[in-house]
Design a protein around this nucleic acid. Structure first.
Lengths: 190, 190, 190, 190
DNA sequence: ACCTAACCGAGACGGTACGTCCTGTCTTCCG
DNA sequence: CGGAAGACAGGACGTACCGTCTCGGTTAGGT
């Protein structure tokens, strides 16, 4: 019997998984990434340290999972007849997802990606590339309609948009608002 | 005048200072920022740990000093009659300064700035702001000549240029080449 | 019943405990107390420093445990009909336990007890008091038989005996031999 | 030939010497021997560290000088016709010199003597031996008068007296009072 | 009056060890 | 057999002192 993929033993506790993701996110807001520890996450979640290490390589990957789940839910991929508006909509929605809490997480993840190359790879694969693909699709549709500025390739256009986004996130703290979305749209399209 | 600035006691050792900056830079290349330690820097430099901590808060500030010294020496501020060419020249020189070794240091510093807010403040003050000021001056002179794209403010233009620079540095690894400098120039100036 | 004393989690490693006690004792003989360090003990024992600090407050307490174990095993409490002989026997056995290696440890412990009052309290409670009690019992039995010198109380007699012992240990280096045991016996009893 | 020991140059500052001895003694009382540091002594005395190290090997030797000066001044060597009374007088005066402040210093010195063998040698030579000589002289005069207990040598008698003294100082904290002086006199003389 | 020598306070230097914190792994018992 | 509890080996942290080495400046002969 035992059948298909059903293995013996206790199943992974969905409750623990949620508790760990939540604890990591909460603690990040409370103490900051520098003082966020796996021990602290486990303690807050009411689990053992091993339960964290069993499912994630370290604290950064816990946050990464928390953030990607959030992004998957909150950022749509617009596809209407007005391809210029689609771009503006995408950027506005992307910026709107950058709440103070997700902002903290994103900055921490980008930092960790610089420090730990192996995590950097996972970070790019899991979060950065999918976002590039999404924006790239919107930009491509604009180009097909002849709206893209002629000296820009898709990749470079994406670099400019996400460059501005991350630069404000990481370096200046200037807001990710509708004004920036509008400005980027005009810069990329014309 | 004023005087009295002469304090008693042994002077700071310039030899140790140089040895520490050099050791930090070398070790960063050899083992990466994650495994760069103050202990390691001191050992390599042939100094005591306390001599590092006496003059710098931590390993990030050592690297910051090493990098700012480099930037001060290698990036000129062009001021010719051709204000469009000045922008292209500035960006090209900036990108050319991003050698593999300085690139590693910059990525580490930006990462540390996210993780340690106090260092972040010093990083912005010491490295980011001066670079923004420099590019801002070049952009301003272009605007005075009516060359800047009309929908761009100086700050936003700087955001776009440095955004692209840092995004490629931190996220994609795409090259900082003359092509990018040319493209940015055309995007900003129109 | 028996109550709940069973906790989850890994048990204390008896192997590490023994290794630490042994390493401390060996290193004391090799380098002396001044250059005996917790780091050295842990390294020699093949454990982490934290495993020492988890169970002992510092290097002195490690030695104290090693010495008390030794004393417990090697010094009997004689109780025969000849109460004068009992005293002589007790002193002789006590002196015989002062091998070069235990002597080193005892001198270090007495020194540390002077320097660190909190350790001093533990030292008295763990090693000094029990030894006083033991000798006190022998002296008491002698007094009940009318053998004790009339002007001596039990406490004072004990002070004289242990005073001579420790003074030779700490100050003069003169031997703790049978002659001293005999002489103390005659001085205390008569 | 030239003159004996007359050298050119600035003379040793008696003021600094006194300030250092006083600072060491005061700080010992305030913070205890464990937290007494050469840096602290120099700072309190208003001198440089080098001035301490120029004249003393370390903090223990500073205290040793302070204590021996005290002993030299306060403990007489009685020499009357009543040789039994002389012994009692000597012990009483010795015990009286053990004020709380000198007691702290003596305990610290004996501790340091165990830990640092080189200092131990200086300690014995400077403080312990002279005191033994003094008591030995008194005991010898008693023996010449036929007053010493017959089974005691001079050395052993001195061991018993100083043994009780140091044992109470280091181990039990019981008082060094006239009762102990009287009791030792009776025990040694018979 | 200058020279040279030894001292002085101050404080940076190369080092060592401290005691703490966290990592990632490993037992142990419970459900 | 997953999971909590928690001990384990390892290693960096930032601090405190050690004893030494410059500094500029003072105080004394010797010439």
């Amino acid at each position: 019997m035992s059948g298909s993929g059903v293995r013996p033993g206790r199943r992974r506790s969905e409750e623990s998984r949620q508790a760990i993701l939540g604890a990591a996110f909460d603690l990040l807001g409370e103490v900051g990434y520098a003082r966020l520890t796996v021990e602290g996450i486990a303690a807050r979640a009411g689990t053992g340290k091993q339960t964290v290490y069993r499912w994630w390589p370290g604290k950064a990957d816990v946050l990464l999972e928390a953030v990607t789940a959030y992004a998957r839910e909150h950022i749509p991929l617009p596809e209407t007849a007005d391809r210029a508006a689609d771009l503006r909509t995408f950027l506005t929605a992307t910026f709107a997802a950058a709440t103070p809490r997700t902002t903290d997480a994103l900055r921490a993840l980008m930092a960790e990606a610089q420090i730990d190359p192996a995590f950097g790879e996972r970070f790019r694969e899991t979060l950065l590339h999918p976002r590039r693909e999404a924006l790239g699709a919107v930009v491509d549709r604009a180009r097909e309609a002849g709206l893209l500025a002629p000296h820009l390739t898709t990749d470079t256009a994406v670099d400019l948009a996400f460059g501005a986004l991350w630069y404000r996130l990481l370096a200046t703290g200037r807001p990710l608002d509708d004004e920036l979305a509008e400005l980027l749209t005009r810069t990329l399209l014309r």
